[in-house]
Structure formats: structure tokens, C-alpha cells
Nucleic acid binder design. Structure first.
Lengths: 218, 218
DNA sequence: CATGACTGGAGAGTGGCAGTATCCATACTA
DNA sequence: TAGTATGGATACTGCCACTCTCCAGTCATG
């Protein structure tokens, strides 16, 4: 398949495909001549994934490339892929991330939860920054308030990994991990907002209904 | 307080404050003359909130304005504020949102959960879009798979609303709702990623540890 | 009243980024 | 051999979050 067919089948304009090739989002096709290359189904699938990450999730091109290169390089180690820089957070160039204010709170939180994480997971910085911002805004929100949220996040992670169980192929598994981790993020936040609206209405007395389904937690 | 002091106390450049005033993010000060206005502590607090929403959460200026105007207009009705267009999703101009593909799945999901929501909550569209994207990518992910996620989201919402219980002042309450809803979003996603990494390591056999804390769910 | 610093407001300019358009030498295709 | 398509490079567009510049009006001081 050449670039025009790739464009036709994906709905992505020719020029945009070239742009993604240039940016390293899409691996180059198998060159058959100086100005000719052959693309296959994996390119098509990759291209659709790129569009989803960029337009649905709203990732930047750079963040998308990092995610995808992680998928390609660590196909087998899904648990390595999952902790990646998926938030498109800007980095504070060459500064020790450990010196970031609020990071000790994150360490305390992680220790309390008993989580074993790689030291340089960018997610740590995100949490530190959030806590610091909340503090600067004058709230009394501390890392302890995050503990119950973290336990719910852990159950969410259990659901996530359960979704991966029935996939054997390494590449497919890694791609599915990305889909479930990254693409589901806006949906999960939307679910939270809807649940807030419902729960708020319930507490307001307007609507009868159980506050929390299932056992425990409440 | 005049604009320079506002700038000094918030750390936001003079020109940027003017920009926010022009864009309607920051309400104008009390005019004392044709070229003179007086700002107070609420402006300072609002300004810090704006910076947090834009730089920490990554909202666009327009999305931030919508959130803030909602806070101002519905100070008392927190449950109205919570369901808002916080995701900075682009809208498909003048199209009936009900005609969006996948929306019937969202209706089924909401019905299954027993949630009572306003009809035009933008969160519905986000979920529909996500489901549609996952379908177009060839996964077998249906709305039923979202049910357990939604139940966890509901517990998260319970935590969120609990955080608001001890606040009486309407404006403070609405602002706190925004903080917890919007500003916490990146942190919650980060918690999920960290939990995924931990859970994946546990399942991989590398680390001993309980899969899920607390009762139920597992 | 004169002078200079400051103010609010408006328009233009900047830099970054995603995507698009144009060229060009080359390569298939009729 | 003429016409179309390709890959690659470069330049351009449009959007957006600022940021700069200018201006008349205002205030503080002498």
C-alpha cells in the first residue's frame, strides 16, 4: 500500500501522514526505491491510533511520539509502558525532580499505599504539583486526603489490567494497554463528573437513589 | 489595590492580567475614574485560580472562562456547577448532539447506573466519542465494560462531595468544588497510572503485596 | 498649575504548535 | 514519452496564549 491508499483508508490527509512520518510518529514504510515506499496494515492501525491519541485524548505530537515509541520498544513489558509520561506535562528542563516542592508528600503517600514504583515516574511530579497548587490556593488539602482516591485508583487499575488478560500478541497487548490507559482517561473523568452531578442531586434530596453501589468503602 | 499590586502579589505579569480582564476571565475592578480601578482579595484569589486551571490543569482560556462564570452564576447550586464543560472539548458547531454515534450506548450506561443527569451534560458526548473511537480501532470494548469504572467513579464523587461538607460560604464552596473537580483531575489520572504500574508489577510476580486494599471489589 | 510615573484599554506583534501547501527529482504507468 | 504519483524538504497558514506598544486619563508631588 502506498501513501494515497493509506490516506484514503484512514481518512487522514496525505500531507498530514507525511507530517507524522517526519515527526517520527509513524514508522517509515519499506523503501522500494528512492521515492517509493510500501506501507502495510500495521501502519494503518498505528495511524488510527495516532489520530485517536491526538484528537480524542488531546495529546501533543511529542507526547504521542513518546507513548508510541514506548509501545514499540517495550512491547513485552506492559507494566513499563503503563507508567509513562502520558500527561504531556512540561518538564522543568535540567532540574533534579526530587527538589520539587511537595515531593516528600508524594513519597509519604506512596509509602502509605505500599506501592512499588520506579523512581522517576512522571506521575509523581504531577501529584506533587497538584498538592502544591492546592496548598498555594489556601486549601487544607493534604496528601492524606488522596489516600482514599488512590485506593479507588488501584481498583481502577485492576479493571484496566483485567482488560489485558485475554490478549496474547505482544504488540497488540501493548497497543491495547495504551488505548485503555490513555484513551479511557477523558471518559473516566467524564464518568466522575456525571457521578458528581448525580451524587450532588441525591444529597440535595431531589432524587431518591443509593449513594454508593456495592459493598465497602462508604 | 491596583493592577501592579495585584501583579506583585500573584506573580502574574501586568500584561497578562490585562489580557485576562479583556477575555472576561477576571471580573473588572471597581472603577474609581476613567482610567482607574480598584481590585480586592477576591480578584487575587480568582487570579490564582485562573493560573491553576490554565497552567496546572491545562484548560484553554475559553474553557476557564466558562468554568469561572458558572462558579459566579451558580454559587449556591454546586451540583449544577459540577457537570460543566470542563474538558475543553471542541464542539461540532450546530449539530444535534443526540445524533452523535454511540450516544445510545451512553444512555444505556446511564440507565443501568440509575444516574439522573441533565440531558445536555457534555460528559455524555465525551463518553460517546471514546466508545466510538475504541470501536473504530477494532476493540470489543462496549459500554458494559464501563459499568465497573462508573461505580468507582461514583465512589470518587462521594469523596469529592465529602470534601465540600465543611464549607458554608457559597462562593468558597463553589470555588472549592471547581478545585476538587478540575484541579484534581491530573492527580487522579496520575494515581491511576501509578496504580497500574504497581498492579502490573504485582501480577508480574516481581513484588509481593495485596492486589486491592479494603473489602469487596476484587 | 507643571511634571512624571502609573493606569486601564485597545490593537498589533510574538512564539509555539498542528497541520497544509508548494517544489522537486524520481519513479511507476499508459 | 507524457502524465500522474511518490517521498522529502521547505515554507506557509491558522490558532492560541500571551506580550508589547501606544494612548489619553489620573494621581502624587512641588
Amino acid at each position: 500500500m502506498r501513501i494515497s491508499e493509506l490516506s484514503r483508508r484512514s481518512g487522514v490527509p496525505n500531507a498530514t501522514i507525511k507530517f507524522y512520518l517526519r515527526k517520527g510518529l509513524l514508522p517509515p514504510g519499506r523503501a522500494t526505491a528512492a521515492t517509493q515506499a510500501e506501507y502495510d496494515e500495521t501502519h494503518l492501525r498505528r495511524l488510527r491510533l495516532i489520530r485517536a491519541l491526538i484528537s480524542v485524548r488531546g495529546l501533543t505530537v511529542n507526547a504521542t511520539r513518546e507513548v508510541l515509541s514506548a509501545v514499540s520498544e517495550h512491547e513485552a513489558d506492559v507494566h513499563q509502558v503503563l507508567g509513562l509520561a502520558l500527561g504531556a506535562k512540561r518538564v522543568d528542563q535540567d532540574g533534579e525532580p526530587d527538589t520539587q516542592p511537595g515531593m516528600s508528600d508524594v513519597d509519604a503517600l506512596v509509602a502509605r499505599l505500599g506501592w512499588q514504583l520506579s523512581e522517576h515516574t512522571p506521575a509523581r511530579g504531577v501529584i506533587a504539583e497538584t498538592l502544591e497548587t492546592l496548598r498555594s490556593l489556601g486549601t487544607d488539602f493534604s496528601w492524606r486526603a488522596l489516600v482514599p482516591y488512590a485506593e479507588l485508583a488501584q481498583r481502577t487499575a485492576v479493571l484496566d489490567l483485567d482488560q489485558l488478560k485475554d490478549t496474547d500478541d505482544a504488540l497488540e497487548r501493548a497497543e491495547r494497554a495504551v488505548l485503555l490507559t490513555v484513551l479511557l482517561e477523558p471518559a473516566l473523568l467524564a464518568l466522575r463528573r456525571m457521578a458528581q452531578e448525580h451524587e450532588s442531586a441525591v444529597r440535595h434530596g431531589a432524587i431518591p437513589g443509593p449513594s454508593v453501589p456495592g459493598p465497602g468503602g462508604g
